[in-house]
Amino acid sequence: MTILVLIEHYQGGVADGSLELLTLARTLGGPVTALVLAGSMADVATLAAGLDADTVLAVAAPAVARYASSVYLRSLNAAIAACDPELVLLSYSTAGIDLAAGASVATGREMVAYVTSLTRHGAGFAACSQVYGGKLLATSTLPAQGIAVVMPGAVKAGPRSTGDAPVQTLTVDLGPDGCIRHLETLVPESGGIDLTKAARIVCVGRALGNTDKLPMAEALAKLLGAEIAGSRPVIDAGWLPKPRQIGKSGTKVKPKLYLMAGVSGAPEHLEGMGESELIIALNSDPRAPIFGKAHYGAVCDMFEVMPTLIQKLS
């Protein structure tokens, strides 16, 4: 029995979330199989180098050179069938969303998503998940041979292995020729801002209400020498440009200071900033999930505290 981990990669680099899954699999104990899909065996070898797994299961075909849900799902299903793992680990990423439910139905396995912690429990596993935008925690029992979709950042990735795991090739019927055809890869336009390089960030959330209060937040950011950023609702509303979005569909940052005002702290946002060194959160809702992640917090009206803080800083 093994734990099967799907390895996601982009431009020759393995995704952080996938490395975290390997570490989680190790923590749970038992042999670990890494499923690597790539265009050629040479690419598989490059990606597999240093992966902390006991076995690398490789699907090498031009059709899986780049991610596409259909061929990845067929490969995942075939891999599950091939090694009958006691647990399948996927990252809560676009691929994780695309594949987990499909694999669950196709292979008749139970699944649980949004997992923040996973431990062995009897013959199966106990999973703790974030639901309702992180406002509630769900504890569920995942039977053996289940599938877990784990939040990025739920565990810290361990060191990479020094040796290379043996590679087994898996031949998969990748299905009708190209029902989903990759046309092009799109890289985000940074617009000149690279938040990943910012040491200090002031992030505003939905509670900002409108662009009217934005100058207040910008003034605060300026005084702190910080970049201004926003959560998804702020970007969706057009109050700040897309390159300033922090979170799952935006930028992932690890600044020294992350001061956030009016961000409730949905898991998708935490994913983008959870590793910041110092997190200070202002929110009017005492139950905002952000207070579970922040180092310092205050339940307050951000529009009352910000001007006072600006006064003190200037």
């Binding site: 406002k135 509630l136 769900a138 504890t139 569920s140 139950r287 207070f291 579970g292 310092y296």
Partner: peptide, 19 residues
């Protein structure tokens, strides 16, 4: 698996130091 799932409010005590 809902029959085997329980919900809870997150324990905030382990979280932020509150001002």
């Amino acid at each position: 698996m809902s029959h085997g799932t329980t919900l809870a409010l997150p324990d905030q005590s382990a979280g932020a130091v509150m001002f």
